[in-house]
């Protein structure tokens, strides 16, 4: 008797499959709700990347234009292909009078970066983080070399130099 139960089972499973795909089709036909593709060049202004997207390396700045980088250059030694260059300098701290390291320039070569994220893992201060910017196209390669610390930014208080 498995002959007839096979037919019935087969039909049932086929109809289950058709119900699922049919739901996708008719919802997409009228509302485009399940459509997951992006109409890329059209929505370039409104397109938002998800939180874990690895767009580029950025240096975190708070609202007072303060960053957490003390120029220890651990990120530079962690980078496998030399995408980062950090220039620091030393000046006496006004409170303790000791020489303290501070960041002058944090240079990021986007054209060499493979988005491996090792610099972010290496940073003891969690100063670096992922940015969600995806539109990196430039006509000139030199424009891909970026200075990460914003002009006039200072070290956040509470970070040891």
């Amino acid at each position: 008797m498995s002959y007839f139960s096979d037919i019935i089972n087969g039909t049932k499973t086929l109809l289950t499959g058709m119900r699922i795909t049919g739901k996708y089709f008719f919802v997409n036909l009228f509302t485009r709700k399940y459509v997951i593709t992006q109409q890329y060049p059209d929505n370039i202004d409104t397109l938002k990347m998800f939180d874990r997207f690895r767009g580029e390396i950025t240096l975190y700045h708070n609202e007072n234009n303060e960053h957490k980088c003390d120029a220890c250059t651990l990120c530079v030694s962690a980078c496998p292909n030399g995408s980062l260059e950090v220039f620091g300098d030393k000046k006496p701290d006004p409170e303790t009078g000791k020489n303290k390291r501070y960041l002058v320039k944090h240079i990021y070569h986007l054209e060499m970066c493979t988005m491996c994220g090792l610099c972010i893992e290496a940073c003891p201060q969690d100063a670096l983080e992922w940015g969600q910017n995806f539109h990196h196209v430039q006509y000139d390669r030199s424009k891909l070399t970026k200075v990460l610390n914003k002009p006039g930014s200072k070290l956040m208080s509470g970070i040891k130099g």
Binding site: T21, Y24, F25, N28, L29, R32, Y34, V35, I36, T37, Q39
Partner: peptide, 10 residues
């Protein structure tokens, strides 16, 4: 076109 809608494309 129909294939697109079935496969969550346009």
């Amino acid at each position: 076109r129909v294939a697109g809608f079935f496969q969550l494309r346009l």
